[in-house]
Computed example of a mutant assay.
Amino acid sequence: MNKPSGGAVLAAATAFLVGTAGGYAVTQVIRRGHEIDLENELARLKDEVSQNTKPDVPSDEEATAALAKSGRSMRISECKPRQFVPGVTCSGIITTTAGSFAGVIQPGVLSFAKIEGVWRQIQ
């Protein structure tokens, strides 16, 4: 039986290593493509969930209308859902618009609920 020459063994070993490395590289490219697809899908799902779970919150005008009888207005900076009762708790800048304290501006937190389609301040 003929013994393979050193050049043939070296060529076979090189071909094996190149094939293995090439296969690994292709596998990594495919794997990264799947990871990117999964990351994009996860981002899409997170966005979809956040859009579906955003609480209905009053605008500055709706909050001001709800406070009109009390002689105050509000510029809302953030609203969060109330835990155990309907409505939202909003923080922002409250301005007194009537009475002896008219013009007083201070930060504050007030709660609102939509009752029969209209935002109202609640306690």
Rank of each mutant, 00 (worst) to 15 (best):
K69P: 00
T53Y: 02
D56Q: 12
F101Q: 13
E39D: 12
Q28N: 14
T53S: 08
A102S: 15
A63E: 04
V88A: 03
A98M: 08
A8M: 09
P81C: 03
Q28V: 13
S70M: 12
A113M: 01
V26R: 11
G6S: 12
D37G: 03
D60M: 09
S111Q: 13
Q83I: 05
R120C: 03
G103L: 04
G92K: 04
E78W: 01
E62H: 07
L110H: 07
G103E: 06
R31H: 14
A63D: 03
S59M: 05
V9Q: 05
A66T: 11
S73I: 02
G6I: 13
G99S: 08
P107I: 05
L42N: 13
V85Q: 11
I93N: 06
A15E: 07
R72E: 14
I30M: 13
E41T: 06
A113V: 01
C90D: 04
P55N: 03
I94S: 02
S91H: 01
A98W: 00
V26Q: 13
L10P: 00
V29D: 12
I30W: 11
A15S: 09
A12Y: 02
G87D: 11
S73N: 11
F84R: 06
A65H: 04
R75I: 11
F101E: 15
A68Q: 12
D56K: 11
V49G: 01
V104N: 10
E39H: 10
Q51V: 01
P81Q: 09
D56R: 05
A15W: 08
I30G: 00
V85A: 11
L42G: 14
E35V: 14
I93H: 01
S5E: 12
F84P: 00
W119A: 06
E62W: 06
V109K: 13
V9G: 00
P107A: 02
I122D: 01
T20Y: 14
V118C: 00
S70I: 04
F16T: 13
A63G: 07
V109G: 01
I115E: 13
D56M: 04
S50N: 08
S100F: 11
K3N: 09
R75K: 15
E39L: 15
R72Q: 15
E41S: 11
G71L: 08
I76C: 07
D47T: 13
I105E: 15
I76K: 04
T14A: 15
S111G: 08
T27N: 15
K114F: 03
I105K: 14
A21W: 10
I122Y: 03
C79R: 04
S77K: 06
F112M: 04
A63Y: 05
A11Y: 02
V118R: 14
V85M: 04
D56E: 14
A12K: 07
V88H: 03
V29N: 10
A8R: 12
P107S: 09
M1F: 07
G108M: 07
F112G: 03
G71P: 01
V85H: 01
T14V: 12
S100G: 14
L38E: 14
I122Q: 02
A113C: 02
Q51S: 10
A65V: 02
T20C: 03
L67S: 02
T64A: 15
S91R: 14
S91W: 01
D56W: 00
I30L: 14
A25K: 11
L67I: 06
T53V: 13
G71V: 09
A102G: 11
P86D: 15
L10W: 12
V9N: 02
A13Y: 08
